[in-house]
């Protein structure tokens, strides 16, 4: 059986008992969608509103879902765009700023009319600006000289304060690989940047995963 199939989506799209079919879709995915918003929202009211908006859009756009991806992938995209719109709405109430994304223009998407709305607002200047001071430039170069996977492990550990297992899950590698990368990176960075930064190669405490 095609793993992408969802019988209730198919029944809805074929016009078979549409209300019941959509009810079943809602019941199947309610908890998943709710958890997604619960991780990002503070109030029960807000979570429920975002869930409602997501399924409302799913209902409106389900005719456009062509099954080229899994239904769950499409549902994720709809959920994310609903959240982005909520963030944007809150942001624009506070300030007026220019919005950018990697994809400057997206004219059509099956996920709804607001699918191309960028995630965040730009406030600072281009990357060049931050490299104007020598230390930042040296740090940037030293990081770029690390093997890519090793560099990403350091960034996830330091910038995002992630645990080993979280890094391993995100990078799809073993925890031992993460540990090995961090250990080697610390040696390299200490040697390279010790003259410029305190605890170059990041603090030893970071090797004691919580």
């Amino acid at each position: 059986m095609d793993e992408r199939r969802n019988i209730w989506v198919e029944r809805w799209q074929k016009g078979i008992d549409r209300e019941e079919s959509f009810h079943q879709i809602f019941r199947q995915y309610y908890r998943l969608v709710r958890s997604f918003f619960a991780r990002r929202s503070r109030s029960e009211e807000e979570i429920e509103d975002l869930v409602q908006e997501t399924f409302f859009r799913v209902h409106r756009n389900l005719d456009h879902f062509r099954g080229e991806s899994k239904f769950e992938t499409w549902l994720f995209q709809v959920s994310t765009n609903v959240y982005k719109n909520a963030v944007r709405s809150q942001t624009t109430q506070k300030r007026d700023a220019q919005e950018v994304s990697w994809d400057e223009v997206e004219t059509s998407s099956a996920t709804g009319e607001d699918a191309a709305i960028p995630w965040e607002v730009r406030e600072n200047g281009p990357l060049d600006d931050l490299l104007q001071d020598e230390r930042s430039r040296i740090l940037h170069i030293a990081m770029q000289e690390l093997p890519p996977q090793m560099r990403r492990c350091v960034e996830l550990r330091v910038s995002q304060d992630m645990k080993y297992r979280e890094i391993a899950a995100l990078m799809d590698v073993s925890i031992d690989t993460v540990k090995a990368h961090l250990f080697q990176a610390r040696q390299l960075l200490k040697k390279r940047l010790g003259d410029y930064f305190a605890e170059a190669g990041f603090a030893e405490a970071r090797f004691a995963d919580r």
Partner: peptide, 29 residues
């Protein structure tokens, strides 16, 4: 006199993020 490596790295990351924007959910998929 030396700045913290970790703080500097975090600052570098934050400024990179502000400069480059974010992938769309379709990109991530």
């Amino acid at each position: 006199d030396k700045p913290s490596f970790e703080e500097s790295l975090r600052e570098l990351a934050a400024r990179r993020l502000a400069a480059e924007g974010h992938p769309t959910p379709e990109d991530l998929a």
